[in-house]
Simulated scan of single mutants.
Amino acid sequence: MPESAAAGQRPLARAVLSSGPRQPFGSHLAAAMAARGPLCVGIDPHPGLLADWGLNDDVAGLERFSLTVVEAVATLAAAVKPQVALYERHGSAGMAVLERTLAAASDAGVLSIADAKRGDIGSTMAAYADAWLRDGSSLAADSVTLSPYLGFESLRPALDLAAESGRGVFVLALTSNPEGKSVQHVGGSESVARRIAEAAAEENRRYAGAMGPAGLGSVGLVVGATIGAALVELGLDLDAVHGPILAPGLGAQGATPADLRSTFGAAYPAVLATSSRGILAAGPTIAGLRSATEATRDGLLKG
C-alpha cells in the first residue's frame, strides 16, 4: 500500500495538482495513483441514488449529493468522475452544479474526469474542446472522455488543446455493453478498437518527452473492466499505449480486483479502476462513503 494511503492522508495533492505551471495530465495522474492507489470514484447522481440518500431529484439534491461525494473521497481516490448526463437532465441549473462540483474537486486537490463522451467534427469538436479543456472555462476538468466513432482524427481539436493546456483525454475504445461489439470488434485482428488503441499510442509517442518518470501519457483509453477475454481475442496491446486505462465496472457491475489483474495483464499498472454505485450506495454519510472508498481502494492495492 502507498505510504500516504496507509496513513489516510494525502498532503501532496495540492502540490501535485496546482503548484507552479500545469504539468501534463499523465504525470499528475501517475503521481496521484502512486500516492493513493488506482481508484476513480464515479459521481453518478441517479434519481434512485438520490432517493436512497433521502434527497429530492432536484438541483438542491443534486448539489448536496455531488459535494458530499467530493468531500468524502477527495483525499482517498486518485480521481473523481462526474457523469455529465446526470447533470444535463436538470438543465442549466444542473450544469451550474457540475461547475461547482468540478471547482470543489480542484479545491480539494483531486483530479477530475468529466464523463461527457463528446465527439463531433470540425468547429463543433473545437467547441466541445473549448468547453471542457480550455483554461478559464467554467466547465474545464482535468480530463474528459471522448467518443472517436466519427474517426479518431476528428478528435484533433481536443487532443491538441489537452496537450497545450496540460489536460488529458480518455478515448472510448472497448466498452463492456453488448451493443459495443457491433462497432468496436469489427475487423477481427484489425478491429476498430485496435485501431483506436494504436492511434492513442501514437499520440502519446508524440509527447513522450513530457511523460515524466512514470512514463504515463495524457491520452488514455476507456476499456470496460468486464470485457473478459476481448483484449486477447482482438489482439490489443494496451501496455504499448503508454497512457492511462480508465476501467469502469468495478464493484456493482461485477468486476473484482482479481478480474482487473487478469484482464489487463501487463497494462494493469496503468489501470485506473472506476467504482460508482458500489461506493455511492454507502452514503449519505461521509463516514460511510469513506469506509466504502477505503475498502475498494485497499482491495485494488492487494489485488
Score class of each variant (00 low, 15 high):
198 E>Y: 04
276 S>N: 11
78 A>P: 00
59 V>F: 04
302 K>N: 09
197 A>K: 11
11 P>C: 03
76 L>P: 02
276 S>R: 11
182 S>A: 14
247 A>F: 05
145 T>N: 11
139 L>Q: 14
109 G>R: 09
52 D>R: 15
121 I>L: 08
62 L>C: 09
191 S>R: 08
217 G>H: 01
116 A>V: 06
247 A>H: 07
134 R>C: 02
33 M>E: 00
225 A>I: 11
13 A>I: 01
54 G>C: 11
51 A>S: 13
27 S>K: 07
4 S>Q: 12
39 L>H: 05
254 G>L: 10
105 A>V: 06
116 A>L: 05
175 T>L: 10
107 D>Q: 15
101 T>V: 13
5 A>I: 01
125 M>G: 01
203 E>N: 11
197 A>E: 02
203 E>R: 15
169 V>G: 01
46 H>G: 02
166 G>Q: 03
35 A>E: 15
293 T>D: 06
142 D>E: 14
222 V>E: 13
294 E>Y: 09
191 S>Q: 07
292 A>V: 04
188 G>C: 10
184 Q>M: 15
131 A>Q: 13
194 R>D: 03
193 A>K: 13
212 G>V: 00
17 L>W: 00
188 G>M: 06
227 I>Q: 10
267 A>Q: 09
86 L>C: 09
49 L>F: 09
33 M>D: 02
28 H>L: 14
274 T>H: 08
5 A>S: 13
114 A>L: 08
188 G>T: 06
118 R>C: 00
187 G>A: 09
7 A>Q: 15
47 P>S: 12
148 P>M: 10
178 P>M: 05
144 V>D: 07
292 A>D: 04
4 S>W: 12
47 P>A: 14
83 Q>N: 13
287 A>G: 08
12 L>E: 15
251 G>Q: 07
237 D>W: 00
115 D>M: 07
123 S>Q: 09
54 G>H: 05
164 E>N: 01
265 G>P: 08
55 L>V: 10
86 L>H: 15
43 I>Q: 10
7 A>E: 09
142 D>Y: 02
245 I>Q: 00
69 V>T: 11
200 A>Q: 07
220 G>V: 03
181 K>H: 13
139 L>N: 07
69 V>G: 09
211 M>W: 05
194 R>C: 03
77 A>D: 00
221 L>S: 08
242 H>Y: 03
289 L>N: 04
185 H>L: 12
103 A>P: 02
